[in-house]
């Protein structure tokens, strides 16, 4: 539904451009028509966004053409040097990481990476990391800390991979270790959820001073399908589960789990990736500037304090 709408909006925008061109070329005053069309477009777009169900956002977050981590790195950074391997077992292509220049400073960028086509997806395991991915991320975060460089992470995974090798090599330990390391890392960390924030596999690179989320990204303890299978005993109830889980950026801002929503173009990030990347870059720059002013002790104290507050309980 969201996609059909976005096509309709594109047509309206094209029509607007035509009208404006016509008006200036022929010197005819069409301001009334233009204004009417602009108002209509604004209103319909606002309605469309308001009408998006949570599961519509899930679909947008999983859209195959959505920008992935490497797309943001390409658009926002210079001097990208990818670093490979966890130094224990292998390189996990489901997580990419390396040095980059962002806004004139060196940063460590780490992110989940999905594939654009089947071949790349098989190599990248659809963006579902093994323990090696988390251990590579840990190594790179410590490297950033050693040289006093900030860490930027892009979160986009349906979850850490549930397989035999992953269990044998300690998937749980790898994620747990990252949570501990990130809680105490003496350099700024900003995480940005760009697509799917799938449970512990997402959190494993997302404990941060600031957590940003794209407007149509999702972040959840379990996929709506997984939740439906357990609690409703049918994966068909995923829409209902998505509603119950409250997994949209708007939900998470209200629950004070994230710090800011980065706006997307009306049809979703993939319709105008350059514009989306600009908005992400602007938000990262703003938060980074704030965090760079803090001493490491203060940074760690505030980060821990932030996570200590999280949750909802009553006390008798």
């Amino acid at each position: 539904m969201a996609l059909e709408r976005s096509e309709k909006f594109e047509k309206m925008r094209e029509r607007l451009t035509e009208l404006k061109e016509l008006s200036s070329r022929e010197g005819i005053d069409m301001s009334e028509q233009i204004e009417r069309l602009e108002d209509q477009l604004d209103a319909e777009q606002a309605d469309a966004v308001a009408e998006l169900s949570r599961y519509d956002r899930v679909k947008l977050a999983r859209h195959q053409e959505r920008p992935f981590t490497l797309d943001y790195i390409e658009r926002l950074c210079d001097d990208w040097v990818e670093l490979h391997g966890d130094r224990h077992y292998r390189d996990d292509p489901s997580i990419v990481g390396g040095w980059a220049s962002f806004g004139g400073r060196s940063v460590m960028v780490i992110g989940h990476q999905k594939g654009r086509d089947m071949k790349e997806n098989l190599a990248r395991n659809f963006g579902s990391p093994h323990p090696e991915g988390y251990r590579k991320a840990e190594r790179l975060m410590k490297l950033a800390e050693k040289f006093g460089r900030p860490v930027l992470t892009f979160v986009d995974t349906q979850g850490a991979y549930p397989g035999i090798g992953a269990e044998e090599r300690g998937q749980a330990e790898a994620i747990a270790r990252n949570l501990l390391v990130m809680a105490g890392l003496r350099t700024p960390i900003i995480a940005c959820v760009i697509g799917e924030g799938g449970s512990g596999g997402a959190l494993g690179i997302a404990v941060a001073d600031r957590v940003l989320m794209l407007e149509n990204a999702i972040y959840s303890v379990i996929s709506p399908e997984g939740c439906a299978a357990i609690l409703w005993r049918s994966r068909d109830q995923a829409e209902q589960a998505a509603e119950a889980l409250k997994l949209t950026a708007q939900d998470l801002l209200e629950l004070e789990v994230i710090d800011e929503i980065v706006p997307e173009p009306p049809g979703g990030a993939h319709t105008r990736p350059a514009e989306t990347a600009r908005a992400v870059g602007e938000a990262l720059e703003r938060h980074l500037a704030e965090l760079e002013a803090l001493e490491p002790d203060e940074l760690v104290r505030l980060r821990r304090e932030k996570y200590f507050q999280m949750g909802a309980w009553e006390e008798a």
Binding site: M182, A183, L203, V221, L247, M310, G311, A312
Partner: peptide, 15 residues
């Protein structure tokens, strides 16, 4: 408890 339950992983690790 949705996202809050996930955040307890970060919270306990920070502790």
């Amino acid at each position: 408890e949705g996202i809050y339950s996930l955040m307890q992983m970060a919270k306990t690790s920070a502790a």
